[in-house]
């Protein structure tokens, strides 16, 4: 089990109802983590429409999780 800090932006923040949370997960990779979160929060965006960053660096979806990682999901935004 790994405990990570999650941050949500834009429509994901809205769908999660919070701008962030601490989560203990069995997910082995970022992709598995996102699949778990889609079930949990009903995120409408597929992973390939998103960017994900870990500890302020953009990351590959296959990256494994380390204890205490800060994971940020970033959707494209259009408003102006």
């Amino acid at each position: 089990m790994t405990t990570v800090n999650l941050q949500y932006y834009a429509q994901m923040r809205e769908q999660a109802g919070a701008s962030g949370e601490k989560l203990t997960t069995q997910a082995g990779s970022l992709r598995e983590l996102y699949d778990e979160l889609r079930v949990r929060h009903g995120f409408s965006l597929p992973a390939d429409a998103l960017k994900v960053a870990v500890n302020t660096q953009f990351s590959d979806w296959s990256r494994t999780l380390d204890e205490g990682d800060t994971v940020v999901f970033i959707p494209p935004v259009a408003g102006g």
Binding site: Y9, A10, Q11, R13, E14, I74, P76, V77, A78, G79, G80
Partner: peptide, 8 residues
């Protein structure tokens, strides 16, 4: 770009 209370 902006979304509600945030921006990029």
């Amino acid at each position: 770009s902006v979304y509600q209370y945030e921006g990029q």
